[in-house]
Design a protein around this nucleic acid. Sequence first.
DNA 1: CAATGTGAAAACTTTCACAGCC
DNA 2: GGCTGTGAAAGTTTTCACATTG
Lengths: 208, 208
Amino acid sequence: MPRFKIPEITVERLSIYLRAIKKFHHEEILSSQRLAELVGTSDGQVRKDLAYFGEFGVPGQGYKVGKLKGEISHILGLDREQRIALVGVGKLGSALLAYPGFKSEEFKIKAAFDNDPSKVGRTWQGVTIQDVKKIPQVISREKIDLGIITTPVPAAQQVANKLIEGGVKGILNFAPTRIVVPDHVKLRNVDLAIQLEGLSYFLTQVGP
Amino acid sequence: MPRFKIPEITVERLSIYLRAIKKFHHEEILSSQRLAELVGTSDGQVRKDLAYFGEFGVPGQGYKVGKLKGEISHILGLDREQRIALVGVGKLGSALLAYPGFKSEEFKIKAAFDNDPSKVGRTWQGVTIQDVKKIPQVISREKIDLGIITTPVPAAQQVANKLIEGGVKGILNFAPTRIVVPDHVKLRNVDLAIQLEGLSYFLTQVGP
DNA sequence: CAATGTGAAAACTTTCACAGCC
DNA sequence: GGCTGTGAAAGTTTTCACATTG
C-alpha cells in the first residue's frame, strides 16, 4: 500500500495516533488538528503521516474514529495475531510478560525461555518457561515471528542466533549490547540506560 | 561547550559510543572508522557527532579511549552523581530498580514511591518505598532532579505534577500515556508497546 | 601517510499554504 | 465554511570529499 519508503518515525507516530483514538467512540469524528493536539504534534504532520498510506479522511469533516482505527491497525499489522517468544525471564523479562501492552489481543507471548534450571518448567502469566536449548525447535514449531531478548549482555548474541535459526523475522533487544543479525531480520534495540543518559545531558544544558 | 543546538540523536549516539569504548583500555586508540563499526554507523557520523563538542582526536592517529571516555562522560553529565526517584514499584518499577544501568556509579536511585500501603515501608534493592504523598517533600529535601514514572496510566499525570512540584528537571515516563509538563522540565517517553508495534509493521512489509 | 575536522552536497523530514471537496 | 490531501519551501541530518595536521 505505501507508495515507497516510509520513515520509521511515521510508523511510530501511527502507533501513537492509534493509542490516542482508542479512547474515542467508533462514530466520533476527529480532525487532524484535534488529533495533533492529543498527541503533541502538528496537524500537517498527522495528515502527511496518514496520506502515505491512503486517503482515510473526509474533506470538510475529518477522520472517523472507527475507520481510522481499522486502517492504522491494518497498516501496523495489528489486525492479525503476532506470535512472540521472550528469552530471559529475569526481573525485566517477567515484568514484560505481565506488561499490558505485551499481552494484548494482537500480541501473544507464546513461549518463554530461560537457562536457569530452577525456572524451567514453571509457569508465569500463563506461559511455561522452557529451556533455552529448545529455542530453534519451539520457534519453528509454534510459527513465532517476533523474539524479545531480556537476557544479560553475554547471552544476547547467542540467543539472537537461536531465534533466527528458528525463523523469527524481528527481534526486540533489551540487552544493552550490539547484536548482529542478517538483513532479512529486523532488529530493534531498546536501551533503557540511554534514555536516562539523554535526560542527564539535558540537565547539563539547563543549570548546575 | 556546544556551539548551538545539538540534535537529540547525536546525544543518544554519544551514549552508545561511550558504552562501546568502555570495553577498551584507557591507553588504546580508536579511529572513527573502528568506532563506527563497533556501533553500526559511519565514520563521518562519528566525527561529526564528536566535533559538535570539541576536538578530541589526533589527526593521523584517532581518538584515545581514556580522553574520549572523559569527554563524553562530561558532555552527558555522567561525571557527577545523578539523583533519581522512581514512582510506582510494580513489576516494571522493581525491575528497573534492579536494572544494572539504573544503579550505576552515576545514577543513584535515592527514593522510591508507591501508593500501595502494603508496599510502603518495605525495602527493595536498598531503597525504602515511601508513600506517594511525600513525593514533593522528599524530592526537594533530597535534591533529586530526575524522576522515573512506572505507574499505571491513570496515575501518571498526577505523579508527574508532584515530581515537578518537588523540583525535578527531567522525567522518564514509562506509562503509555501523554503527560504534560512545563517548558523547563524535560520529558522523555518510553513506550515499550510501540517498539513491538514497530516490529509488527515491519513484518507486514516482508511478507505474511 | 593515515585519520581528523569541516565545509558543501545530498538526502531526508517537517512545515507551509492552498486547491479541491464535502 | 471547514478540513483534507498534497506539492513546494524550509529546515534538519547524513554523507561526501578533501585540506590540514601529527
